[in-house]
Nucleic acid binder design. Structure first.
Lengths: 250, 250
DNA sequence: CGGAACGTTGAGGAGAATCAATTATAGTGG
DNA sequence: CCACTATAATTGATTCTCCTCAACGTTCCG
């Protein structure tokens, strides 16, 4: 694709409009955003904890993990960012990073200057509101992950994660909930669920033995979505997929 | 106090201004907000999961827990809200609650109509930005809780929680980090840390035996803050206490 | 072809859950 | 003011989930 960044910007804007009503003018302003593309290999830090960032990172291809760490270096991934996701929209109003961002696979990023994004938000308050709403949706996902890690067992946690990622990849137009590519290692899955890689491996085997799901060559194949959703205690309401926020500015 | 709601509004506004620069006019608009007061006994649901809310809840007195649940009824508290906290500011742009709110103690709430808050935000974009930034700070705290539950052991989790609450009560002007009243039960502490009440009890005893912290009659007394912070792996950066967000609108 | 990263499996152990019972504390009504 | 009740705290015994350590197999890529 000649201009992958344009296609990705589309994906991001589509996500915004699914939650917020935007005017023609606002859409135009968003479409006219320009950034620059960086290509990164796995395990590259995009943003370090404590860093002052001046651009937001839109994932074009690959996979990015947002994470926090404990003093022993234990890593907790708090969110996966797939193509079309703006990994750190929140940095627009809070540029001092309290989290880190790292690539989990070969990844292409479109960097959009805060200056430009803030300019758009300041000129067109509807954009600011859409950004705000997206940050809130992000928080809702964080809450669900907290419930996942705090109150579900290993099998349930993994199942929940695979359900969420299935829906998200489906919406992003990359595969569907029954079959999608998730370029994360078992270590990454452990870091996302608060488990060890070894236990992820055993849990995956049990899901495979139950004929519910397989993960092979970074491809998730869901054999029985209904069972997976039950085991994962999954209800997509927290993902705030449908708009419904009334508009501040009419 | 004749008008406790006014004093509480002050607390909320002070929190906003600590992170965001607000103009005289914006402050005036915030100060002129009016709500109505409700008094609630412990274990009363303020907001149920899935409910469409039309007002935001500002905690005047007592303690509120935001929570999610798994299918077995297991509860994960995702945030404690103390006096001066707006428990669901995010509902302004996302009124369909994906979380629940419940009182953990005898609690007084000031209910502020979305209509009024949204009106203020729409008229004065600086207010919208301050609200947005507060939602982002909230997300930062959520992330840290996720790290806490996912990547720390029981003692560390509790210690971290007590550090955070100490700082927050100190800033709220209710006690200080070395001694503050936290009207939560051991069950609540378990629900906040992803542990059982029984294990909380044993962990508290171990902290007491180490002469680090005591919890008696809902009063936290920190005997050794330095050790508590080390055990809890605590760094207050994630609380986003200092402003520093540049302003969208100058 | 060789090395590095990732995945798989086993054995043993630790931390937290569960089950069960008892003791404190606080709130309520007589 | 005190008995009564419900809620919360405490403790012990046992179980189980998940971690740790260790080894080996597999895949991918230069």
């Amino acid at each position: 694709m000649a201009f992958p960044q344009n296609a990705t910007l589309e994906g991001f804007i589509k996500r915004l409009t699914s939650r917020s009503a935007l005017s023609e003018q606002e859409l135009l302003a968003l479409h006219s955003l320009r950034g620059h593309v960086v290509t990164l290999s796995p395990h590259t830090d995009l943003v370090r904890q404590g860093q002052h960032v001046e651009y937001a990172s839109l994932v074009v291809k690959g996979l990015v993990g947002r994470f926090g760490q404990n003093k022993d270096g234990g890593r907790q991934i708090t969110c996966f960012h797939i193509p079309g996701d703006m990994a750190d929209l929140s940095s627009l109003v809070s540029p001092q990073a309290t989290w880190g961002l790292t690539t989990l696979a070969n990844t292409t990023i479109l960097r959009l200057a805060h200056r430009d994004l803030r300019g758009a938000a300041a000129t067109l308050p509807g954009i600011a509101e859409a950004f705000w709403r997206d940050c809130v949706a992000d928080g809702s996902m964080l809450s669900e992950w907290l419930v996942n890690v705090g109150r579900r067992n290993a099998t349930s946690r993994l199942a929940h994660l695979f359900c969420e990622m299935g829906i998200r990849y489906e919406l992003a137009g990359e595969g569907d909930r029954h079959c999608y590519r998730l370029p994360a290692t078992q270590t990454d899955l452990g870091d996302a669920t608060g488990l060890t890689a070894i236990h992820i491996n055993r849990t995956l085997r049990s899901l495979r033995d139950l004929l519910i799901l397989t993960l092979r060559a970074q491809t998730v194949t869901v054999l029985d979505w209904a069972k997976l959703a039950v085991i994962g205690d999954f209800d997509d309401a927290y993902m705030e997929l449908k708009g419904g926020g009334d508009c501040l500015y009419n």
